[in-house]
Design a protein around this nucleic acid. Structure first.
Length: 202
DNA sequence: CGTTCGATGCACT
DNA sequence: GTGCATCGAACGT
């Protein structure tokens, strides 16, 4: 069952929590890939120093000020695309960063895309559970690019679905990979899942 | 184990 | 010109 816009038109922390276990599906000319979300972070409003909306509305962060249920994709460090789901209302810029997936469908295509990265040339193949581990890696494996920016997640080539996956052990931690706003416990993960990014616990 | 650092492109000041 | 919501290799302990 595909998630509708009303799913995203809610408090961002609720959306982040409920996105855990949901399935991202990308249909590209090269084939279909899909993965279940195991890690997500909330970025909420102009008062959140780590949110792109903290600097006010700009050309880049404009999707955050648009309707909920669309993708916000941007390039970071000149290398990696980041996939966000826009949440809340048009006048409340916020989004959930999808940080990691458990690969479900199209694993051979994911392996090919990961192997194509310049820094992976001639290296050992990526283990399956690491194909979508990390926000940059998952966009590469899924073939998500800037062309997907602003696209609705409720229909079309890039969508998010409820396939009935439920996780009992969802934990909240501080967001990672940022320099400010690290005090807020807005990172939801499936505890101990091998596809979750960052340092492994156990 | 841990920390440092280079690659790389573009939005923003 | 500066600074990233990264990745992974290289090095130190």
């Amino acid at each position: 069952m595909i998630l509708r816009a009303d799913f995203y038109r809610r408090p961002t922390l609720d959306v982040a929590r409920d996105l855990i276990g949901k399935v991202v599906i990308h249909q590209s000319p090269a084939g279909v890939t899909a993965g279940a979300i195991v890690e997500a972070e909330a970025y909420i409003g102009e008062e959140d120093p780590a949110c792109h909306a903290a600097v006010g509305r700009t050309a880049r962060n404009a999707p955050l000020y648009g309707p909920p249920g669309r993708a916000y994709v941007y390039l970071n460090y000149g290398l990696h695309n980041m996939l966000n789901a826009v949440t809340e209302d048009e006048d409340h810029p916020a989004a959930v960063l999808i940080r990691a997936l458990e690969p479900l469908d199209g694993l051979p295509l994911m392996r090919r895309r990961r192997a194509r990265a310049p820094w992976r040339r001639g290296k050992a193949p990526v283990p399956d559970h690491e194909l979508c581990r990390g926000p940059g890696n998952l966009c590469l494996a899924m073939g998500i690019t800037l062309a997907d920016n602003c696209r609705p997640l409720t229909r079309g080539a890039l969508t998010i679905h409820d396939r009935g996956i439920r996780h009992n052990e969802i934990v909240w931690d501080g967001r990672i990979g940022i320099r400010v706003g690290t005090d807020k416990l807005w990172r939801a993960t499936v505890q101990s899942h091998p596809s979750v990014s960052g340092r492994r616990t156990a």
